[in-house]
């Protein structure tokens, strides 16, 4: 079955599911409450067994009005048929929490840590939600659109070692 066919099947179970297609790539949009269930269904009943990526988009200054500030994006692959599907859900402040999908895919562990590191979205049920790329003491989430490119002084905040001290 092709991917639009799978989506039409899913719409019986998830009536609020909206979807679109662009150059053969199918994107579905789901609410946060049904996200885990949808991903579980895709994995267990439709063969999308590989989690290719989890990432996020900050639509803060986006021209178009979006349902929420952050778009959380899951890219799934069916390793038998090489089909791909993109699942997106929107989150808005102050409740930047999504269910962790580590029970479904172990690969989600580091991907979710990266999203937390860069966008500050927490994942409920994640086993070890620490920063993965930035230093542990870092307080901001730099891929947010309202974070200044040159930072908030982090790059200037080190002790100065002088000749006489070293």
């Amino acid at each position: 079955m092709d991917v639009p066919g799978i989506v039409q099947l899913l719409q019986k179970e998830f009536p609020s599911l909206s979807w679109s297609e662009f150059r053969g790539q199918v994107r579905v949009c789901v609410s946060r409450d049904r996200l885990f269930l949808l991903l579980q269904t895709l994995k267990e009943q439709h063969g999308f067994d590989m989690l290719a990526d989890i990432t996020c988009v900050d639509y803060l200054y986006y021209l178009q009005k979006m349902p929420g500030r952050f778009g959380l994006v899951y890219v799934l692959t069916n390793t038998q048929t090489n089909q791909r599907i993109v699942v997106r859900t929107f989150l808005d402040e102050p409740e930047l929490v999504a269910p962790s999908v580590t029970p479904l895919w172990e690969a989600a562990n580091w991907l979710e840590r990266e999203v937390w590191d860069m966008f500050g979205i927490r994942f409920a049920g994640h086993p070890d939600l620490r920063r993965i790329l930035l230093p542990d003491g870092f307080t901001s989430h730099p891929l947010r659109k309202d974070y200044p490119l040159q930072g908030l002084g982090e790059r200037n905040n080190f002790p100065v070692i002088r000749r006489a001290e070293s």
Partner: peptide, 20 residues
Amino acid sequence: GRAGLPGVIASQPLDGEHFA
């Protein structure tokens, strides 16, 4: 020399904990 640097927070200590 630091006054004009972009992104510098004047209140942040220079020789304390990193990113304190």
